[in-house]
């Protein structure tokens, strides 16, 4: 018995097949047009950037490795451990455990501070939501994108790593560049 597809059949309408001349143009004409662009660039010489010896400069708003900020005058941490960045993070890669400041152990300016602050860089998608969520501008994103490492666990950035001055190894694009 043959299969009867019934009224579900959709007939495809095709345009006319190109003839001999049209076919030849399709094969050679279009290829030559592409080659024209390629060959025109040859005169300009190579444009390969020899990474890592050479690096592409990034825009000022480039979102790279995070940094936790401190107040310049008091040296206290700006982060109060509110976990809002963790809530905003779509990749769920921030872990904050808060604790209470005491007069002997004043870490941040408010009542609470982050006793644990970790970002799992293997999961971070560099969307910058944490930066937007932070009510104290405590977490900001820098320009460093060279974050690869040999083990995954080394890519869980701790609070100490995030507070430390990051290596400035990425050139910033100059005005108008």
């Amino acid at each position: 018995m043959t299969y009867d597809p019934g009224p579900d059949v959709i007939a495809v309408q095709r345009g006319p097949e190109p003839g001999g001349a049209g076919g030849a143009y399709r094969i050679f004409g279009e290829t030559l047009r592409g080659l024209k662009t390629t060959l025109a660039r040859v005169a300009e010489g190579p444009v390969t950037i020899e990474y890592p010896e050479e690096k592409t400069p990034v825009y000022p708003r480039f979102r790279g490795r995070h940094k936790l900020q401190r107040f310049e005058d008091t040296g206290l941490e700006k982060c109060v451990g509110c976990s809002l960045c963790a809530a905003a993070c779509p990749a769920d890669c921030i872990r904050v455990v808060a604790a209470e400041n005491t007069p002997e152990h004043q870490v941040s300016a408010g009542e609470r501070y982050a006793s644990v602050y970790e970002i799992n860089m293997t999961r971070c998608i560099f969307c910058g939501y944490c930066e937007v969520a932070c009510p104290f501008d405590a977490i900001t994103m820098g320009h460093d994108f060279e974050l690869s490492d040999y083990t995954r666990s080394d890519l869980i950035f701790t609070k100490e790593m995030l507070l430390a001055e990051p290596l400035e190894r990425t050139p910033l694009r100059r005005e108008g560049e």
Binding site: G81, C82, A86, A87, V96, V97, A98, E100
Partner: peptide, 9 residues
């Protein structure tokens, strides 16, 4: 429970 966690944690 003071400062232990947020609801989303």
């Amino acid at each position: 429970y003071r400062f232990r966690a947020r609801p989303w944690d």
